[in-house]
Simulated assay, not measured.
Amino acid sequence: MNYRLLGKTGFNISEVSLGTWQVGGKWGEQFNHTNAERILNSAIDNGINFIDTADVYGDGESEKAVGKVIKSRSEEIFVATKCGRKLSPHINESYTVEALRKYVEDSLRNMQLDSIDLIQLHCPPTEVFYRDEIFELFDRLKEEGKIRNLGVSIEKVSEGLQAITYSNVSTIQFIFNMFRQKPIEELFAAVKANNIGLIARVPLASGLLTGKFSKTTNFGKDDHRSFNRNGEAFDKGETFSGVDYQLGLEAVNELKGIFPNQELALVALKWILQFDEISCVIPGASTPEQIENNLKVEKLAPLSAEQMSAVKALYENKIKPQVHQLW
């Protein structure tokens, strides 16, 4: 396992880490603690030392599973969670210092931890990124020992650029993959100059970049890939990275031509890790085997300059017109 610095947190974390949106089972299924513990232990056994969760994953059950496993292990494991998405309605006016403080304290109880290594605002409305009192709260929580670092999870590049104007923001979690390349030109230089850790989520575009989907692939009715393609439940950029499903399938076929006889999921992860600005990538897993397969990227040879250029050209010609201006 290779490790990278997570910005000014000072944490040395596994470049392939673990996102836990579906760690208790596949999307839409009831949370399964036995399965979650198998996945989490497998991740740690394989050298993963950074786990990203959220209070809304499994309505707190994911946090409970993470906390239980962390406390059973002797290794130093860095835990990141998120707050804010429980607010209903999820609008700027719902964000208050009191509400966010309660969510942080609830997460501490869920995980049975004294302090959270990294707390992240969970894709709040854009207006929240301009409210000083929200960011000041986390200075108070740090003074109280309840958190060690603050980060933000964003939908738009502009939100990340605004967030790092606050000196207490240490990390940005954002969608980054072959189909979402805008951050390269607008965010990377700024985060490098400010020593901000970058956590890349949705690295496989909700599975599109595995190359295993087709026109006839069926997703369960409670799977966001069925019900959120147009943003019916939350930002549509979280589902297939905002790319039209049919267009995505066409682009994936072109990628298979650029990378013949290679496992596309591993290539997609390697593409992300070729950027030095990235601290880690957090693919999800619903089985221990998926973790072990993702970690094969560590043995994959670097992509060539020609391959990187071909991916860029594919994005520019096919994907960019549909997604670039939106996020």
Results as ranks from 00 to 15, higher is better:
residue 214 S to P: 06
residue 75 E to F: 00
residue 92 N to R: 11
residue 208 L to R: 01
residue 232 E to R: 04
residue 267 V to S: 00
residue 221 K to N: 15
residue 152 V to W: 01
residue 283 P to L: 00
residue 143 E to C: 12
residue 128 V to M: 09
residue 266 L to N: 12
residue 156 K to W: 12
residue 147 I to H: 02
residue 152 V to T: 09
residue 142 K to V: 05
residue 294 N to E: 00
residue 314 L to V: 12
residue 178 M to T: 04
residue 137 L to S: 07
residue 233 A to Y: 14
residue 167 S to R: 15
residue 319 I to D: 04
residue 120 Q to I: 05
residue 322 Q to A: 10
residue 89 P to A: 10
residue 55 D to Q: 13
residue 139 D to T: 15
residue 16 V to H: 02
residue 242 G to L: 00
residue 153 S to E: 03
residue 126 T to I: 14
residue 134 I to N: 05
residue 261 N to C: 04
residue 18 L to R: 02
residue 307 Q to P: 12
residue 290 Q to H: 08
residue 215 K to G: 07
residue 224 H to W: 14
residue 95 Y to F: 15
residue 88 S to W: 02
residue 201 R to E: 12
residue 60 G to W: 12
residue 181 Q to K: 06
residue 108 L to W: 06
residue 237 G to H: 10
residue 171 T to K: 00
residue 118 L to M: 07
residue 259 F to E: 07
residue 100 L to P: 05
residue 52 D to V: 04
residue 27 W to T: 02
residue 207 G to Y: 11
residue 201 R to I: 05
residue 60 G to F: 12
residue 140 R to D: 15
residue 62 S to M: 05
residue 260 P to W: 11
residue 68 K to V: 05
residue 246 Q to L: 09
residue 249 L to Y: 04
residue 55 D to T: 02
residue 319 I to K: 00
residue 258 I to S: 01
residue 290 Q to R: 08
residue 162 Q to P: 07
residue 282 I to D: 04
residue 188 F to M: 13
residue 35 N to G: 01
residue 97 V to T: 15
residue 142 K to A: 09
residue 29 E to N: 11
residue 143 E to A: 15
residue 30 Q to C: 03
residue 327 W to C: 03
residue 305 A to V: 07
residue 99 A to P: 06
residue 281 V to K: 11
residue 21 W to I: 15
residue 194 N to Y: 03
residue 308 M to T: 11
residue 105 E to H: 12
residue 85 R to K: 15
residue 112 Q to W: 07
residue 112 Q to F: 02
residue 161 L to G: 00
residue 139 D to M: 06
residue 252 V to T: 02
residue 214 S to K: 02
residue 68 K to A: 14
residue 213 F to Y: 11
residue 61 E to T: 02
residue 269 L to K: 14
residue 230 N to W: 05
residue 243 V to I: 02
residue 244 D to K: 13
residue 305 A to Q: 15
residue 77 I to R: 02
residue 215 K to R: 14
residue 70 I to E: 05
residue 234 F to Q: 03
residue 260 P to K: 03
residue 46 N to Y: 05
residue 23 V to E: 02
residue 91 I to R: 13
residue 156 K to R: 15
residue 171 T to V: 10
residue 324 H to W: 11
residue 92 N to Y: 08
residue 294 N to G: 07
residue 296 K to S: 04
residue 250 E to V: 00
residue 38 R to S: 13
residue 298 E to S: 15
residue 130 Y to Q: 11
residue 67 G to W: 03
residue 323 V to R: 08
residue 86 K to C: 12
residue 256 K to P: 07
residue 237 G to F: 13
residue 137 L to C: 10
residue 248 G to V: 11
residue 101 R to P: 05
residue 209 L to T: 01
residue 184 I to K: 08
residue 98 E to I: 06
residue 278 I to A: 10
residue 140 R to W: 14
residue 180 R to V: 08
residue 132 D to I: 06
residue 129 F to L: 08
residue 131 R to W: 03
residue 97 V to G: 01
residue 146 K to L: 13
residue 228 N to V: 13
residue 203 P to D: 01
residue 261 N to L: 05
residue 294 N to L: 09
residue 141 L to P: 00
residue 110 N to I: 09
residue 255 L to H: 08
residue 99 A to C: 03
residue 214 S to H: 02
residue 29 E to Y: 07
residue 55 D to I: 12
residue 121 L to W: 01
residue 141 L to I: 04
